[in-house]
Design a protein around this nucleic acid. Structure first.
Lengths: 213, 213
DNA sequence: AGACTTGACAAACGTTTGTTTAAATTTTAT
DNA sequence: ATAAAATTTAAACAAACGTTTGTCAAGTCT
């Protein structure tokens, strides 16, 4: 009964579920635990949502809807592709920082086989990849070469998400303060890492194409 | 009852558990399901292992023990640091390819709060990071700068693991054949991506140090 | 004022969870 | 051949699971 006085029961249930799912994983959390954390009766979970699985669906929907906003301005022709990548990285870091638990639940449940959410996942992931593709092309890759899209994009995203995913363990090992300064440097580092990497890849591709000619 | 005739019950239980945990996650799998998949009686799980959680511990131990082998030759002074990084990437890709389910179970349970395996995780992760550190230094980073070690290493590892983690979803979206040719190109791509990225980072660091002087 | 809707609750539903017991069976050693 | 040890089994355990039920109070509308 921690969040009793914050807002309406429905929102409290969602907030409690997000927090617990992020910590222990969807399958490891019971409805009683959610109800207790939200400070509501157990019955309210099936009353407001389509049961426990209904909460997860709501969480995934909410995540994807907010997440798509990080691609805002990704295909701005006035900016250089490099600037677009930098902007994207900045947006993703900021997004995950502001929605850490929501992002962790979604990211952690992504590879697990849960038939009830299989469709939802596939649809949204396809949407994300299609949203990134134009930028990948602008960065100098062959538009028909799906390999690059399927490798570079996910690598970048996973690198950022994993940084937050390993946060609990990292806090035990490294003496960081995760403040504004940290995130500024982190964003800069990831941007440099991937921009140089992508540039290296694009050059290598070009050379191979020349060799074929 | 799928693996009845393969080997001894103890190994069948472990194999079944690895497969099911990788697919659904540890918490979502019951002992009955494991027993059925292994073709043994339910009681055999508590007989051979310390219950369900005992199987997970065994899996994590097995994973880490095998995983540490990918760092073989990581600090070979006869090779250039670039060659060491390439070798490491090659080893990790090959390792995850050969131990996909084992790796997925371990990787997926890593961020989840499970008190019974908290110690084990922290110890092994520390060991992995310490094993990488010398190479990070050789690649041109400040040995006292834990930030770089905590960012670049995990990014590389997560990029590779995520490639396998998203395999089920990717198979729905991209028409790949995951054969030897794919992995050869994949290894090459990741190596180029990170080697150029790391080089870019190292140069940027040097320039900043010069500016301070 | 009387009929109706809504929000919240305790209680109990039937099922499934992981584990344990004790008996039965097979294997091993004497 | 016989006793001891190891293996396997079915059955039962309490506890926890997610969901549904029926009830009651407060608010809304006619």
């Amino acid at each position: 009964m921690k969040e009793k006085e914050c807002c309406c029961p429905k929102k409290r249930i969602l907030a409690a579920a997000i927090s617990l799912f992020a910590q222990k994983g969807f399958a490891a959390v019971g409805v009683r635990e959610i109800a207790a954390e939200a400070g509501v009766n157990i019955a309210m979970i099936s009353y407001y949502y389509d049961g426990k699985i209904g909460i997860l669906k709501e969480i995934l929907e909410e995540f994807f809807n907010r997440y798509m906003q990080v691609f805002e301005g990704i295909d701005d022709e006035n900016k250089t592709p490099e600037a677009c990548v930098r902007g994207l990285i900045h947006n993703i870091v900021q997004f995950v920082r502001e929605n850490t638990e929501l992002a962790m639940v979604s990211y952690n449940e992504l590879p697990l086989d849960l038939p009830e959410i299989a469709e939802l996942k596939a649809k949204r992931i396809t949407a994300v990849i299609q949203r990134i593709s134009p930028l990948v092309v602008r960065m100098g890759f062959d538009p028909t070469d799906v390999f690059m899209i399927a490798v570079v994009g996910p690598s970048l995203i996973s690198a950022i998400f994993t940084n937050f995913r390993l946060r609990p363990v990292m806090k035990q090992v490294f003496p960081f303060k995760f403040d504004d300064a940290y995130y500024e440097r982190y964003t800069e580092t990831i941007a440099t890492l991937f921009l140089h990497g992508i540039k290296g890849l694009a050059e290598e591709r070009k050379q191979k194409r020349r060799r074929v000619k």
